[in-house]
Design a protein around this nucleic acid. Sequence first.
DNA 1: TTATTTGCAAATCATTTGCCCGAAG
DNA 2: CTTCGGGCAAATGATTTGCAAATAA
Lengths: 136, 136
Amino acid sequence: MSKDSKQRAAILRVLRSSSSHPSADWIYEQVKEELPGIGLATVYRNLKRLTEEGRIREMHRANDAARFDGNTATHYHFRCERCGRIVDLDEPVDDTIETRVARRTGLRVTGHHLELRGLCFDCHTLDSRTVNRVQQ
Amino acid sequence: MSKDSKQRAAILRVLRSSSSHPSADWIYEQVKEELPGIGLATVYRNLKRLTEEGRIREMHRANDAARFDGNTATHYHFRCERCGRIVDLDEPVDDTIETRVARRTGLRVTGHHLELRGLCFDCHTLDSRTVNRVQQ
DNA sequence: TTATTTGCAAATCATTTGCCCGAAG
DNA sequence: CTTCGGGCAAATGATTTGCAAATAA
């Protein structure tokens, strides 16, 4: 509810005015031009907070372990936002998206990945019963 | 070309026989039951190698910096596999996939992400001229 | 004053690397 | 013998955390 600190406001401004999907470090460098005293930790803290508030989006959380898939064929995934479990979907793969984008943009497209998010069975039923109990 | 070492074979077997998209650490724990002497570094080295050989897939590369997006509306991305640049696509968003999957699976779906991969303009033209010069 | 945030430094965590040794060809 | 892959420990790089000082409510 409280108003943004000047550092948080600056971070948000930098992020909003960039189309490059920057890293924390790049944002830090930019904000430093306006607020030379800012620390990298402040940038991280505010990015986390803004993400939690839903005001920005974090693409691919770094620093939680990579996950591997023994199935190299294109297929889609569902990720549970609560427990992190990843499930294969048997939804049919739509390859036309690749050619469509390639045609429209001229980019060389070689693959695509679709991930749906939400709550898996366990987490959802758990949620409907006991709202504040958290499982790993 | 060479035959898989017994550790690499074991890693591959564990990964193939699991549908859980495991982390390096989980794979390590599993393989240890068969090869108690194995080291975590070996697991990482082989996962990397198997990925490069295209025999497994690495979902969301960890450990390169997280990236943030000031635009919270659902939209699609293109990631250049060479320089890492991420570009917004103006492809129309298909929300029906969420309800379709929700209906078919019973999962609680709250969002989806689509990422296309390939070579961006710069990297592609650069590639056609000089095959072995690497940028960034 | 009281509650938030900051900046800095030290701590974590996942992953990678250096180095030396053993296994396989 | 020579090369390749492994194990272990130390090094990295991104992110997080503890804490005292600064700022805002």
